[in-house]
């Protein structure tokens, strides 16, 4: 609601400061989670998604929502597509990480033969693995799409596709990581525990690319997370 309102009010896509970016991340995660639940009926993933989304929203709510002077920079078709695709992709990958965590918990319960709190409540390993895989495929597709649109946009604005901006570099690393994961799965049947761990590592890298790079390294993506 608030995002839509801002979008209309400022005529600008709501990803221009950290407040908006985080809210947008929260909302897309919630949306992808709902889609996923509709498809797999995996309600339990909510124990992961809900805190994640709440956390993002809480931080967003605490941050000042300073509106900036309208800049045409953010009203380009390629750019909006770029941002939307990346956000959806990252939301899906966030959920893949969640599915991976639940997988590890459940696998531990089964392997150690000490069936604790989670054993009864968590679904089967197979379902968690499938969900994680589906999330990664979706996430990876969206990420690829987002990167391509990003490249096109960069070409149209700065005249070159790639400028070795730290965010670009890290996005590239993330993309390669997931590409490797998918490749292993398709050719060698990488699944289960190793796939779950990779999904978690992958998401950690995404978090770093999403936030870490902007705070620690400089670059032209910086202002989207400026407070």
């Amino acid at each position: 609601m608030e995002l839509g309102y801002q979008f209309v009010q400022s005529g600008q896509f709501p990803a221009s400061n950290l407040h908006e970016t985080l809210s947008l991340a929260g909302w897309t995660t919630a949306g992808v989670f709902l889609l996923l639940q509709y498809k797999f009926g995996l309600k339990i993933l909510g124990v992961y998604a809900a805190p994640l989304i709440t956390f993002a929203m809480l931080i967003a709510a605490r941050l000042p929502d300073v509106s900036r002077e309208t800049r045409n920079l953010l009203n380009n078709f390629w750019l909006i597509t770029h941002v939307v695709a990346i956000f959806i992709g990252e939301a899906a990958l966030a959920l893949a990480c969640g599915a991976g965590l639940l997988y590890l918990l459940q696998e531990h319960a089964i392997k150690s033969k000490h069936r604790g709190f989670f054993f009864k409540r968590l679904p089967s390993l197979e379902l968690l693995d499938h969900t994680g895989y589906a999330c990664i495929v979706t996430g990876f597709t969206m990420l690829t799409f987002g990167l391509i649109t990003g490249l096109i946009y960069a070409k149209s604005v700065w005249g070159r596709f790639w400028s070795w901006d730290p965010k670009e570099v890290w996005s590239g690393i993330t993309w390669l990581l997931y590409a490797a994961l998918l490749h292993q799965r398709l050719t060698f049947g990488w699944r289960g525990r190793r796939a779950a761990i990779m999904a978690i590592i992958g998401f950690a890298v995404i978090l770093f690319t999403f936030l870490g790079v902007n705070f620690l390294l400089k670059g032209h993506h910086g202002e989207f997370t400026r407070m």
């Binding site: 459940q106 089964i110 054993f119 968590l122 679904p123 089967s124 390993l125 197979e126 379902l127």
Partner: peptide
């Protein structure tokens, strides 16, 4: 029952 937790179906 245990198998169900591994394979689902």
């Amino acid at each position: 029952e245990l198998g169900r937790k591994i394979f689902g179906t």
